[in-house]
């Protein structure tokens, strides 16, 4: 179970949130090739380790929360609003990326 720190509500249980996928996917320019749009809509990595992702606080304030989470350990490193620039923690010599 995750406890996610919503920037507005404070720490809340995972059950109030909906997972909304990769937060690093950026929309291509309007004149980009169809293949780029296909990638943007459908192609996702399946990283082992740190991942920046969207969680929608649908059972609470209905805001979108950006979460840096480790897909191996479920550790949550940082959370923020949609505008916040979050990065994954630097490797500390552990075998986890």
């Amino acid at each position: 179970m995750h406890r996610i720190d919503c920037p507005w509500c404070g720490t809340r249980d995972e059950a109030e949130f909906q997972y909304q996928g990769d937060a690093t996917a950026t929309r291509p320019a309007p004149d980009a090739a169809e293949a780029d749009f296909f990638d943007y809509v459908y192609s996702r990595d399946n990283p082992k380790g740190w991942h920046i992702e969207w969680w929608h606080h649908v059972g609470g304030c209905r805001q979108w929360v950006k979460v840096v989470r480790n897909t191996m350990t479920h550790e949550i490193h940082a959370t923020g609003g949609p505008q916040s620039k979050l990065s994954v923690p630097k490797p500390s010599g552990s075998r986890l990326r």
Binding site: C9, A15, G60
Partner: peptide, 10 residues
């Protein structure tokens, strides 16, 4: 005061 989910109902 908090908005939450109980019995899957907001």
């Amino acid at each position: 005061c908090a908005q939450t989910v109980m019995a899957q109902i907001g």
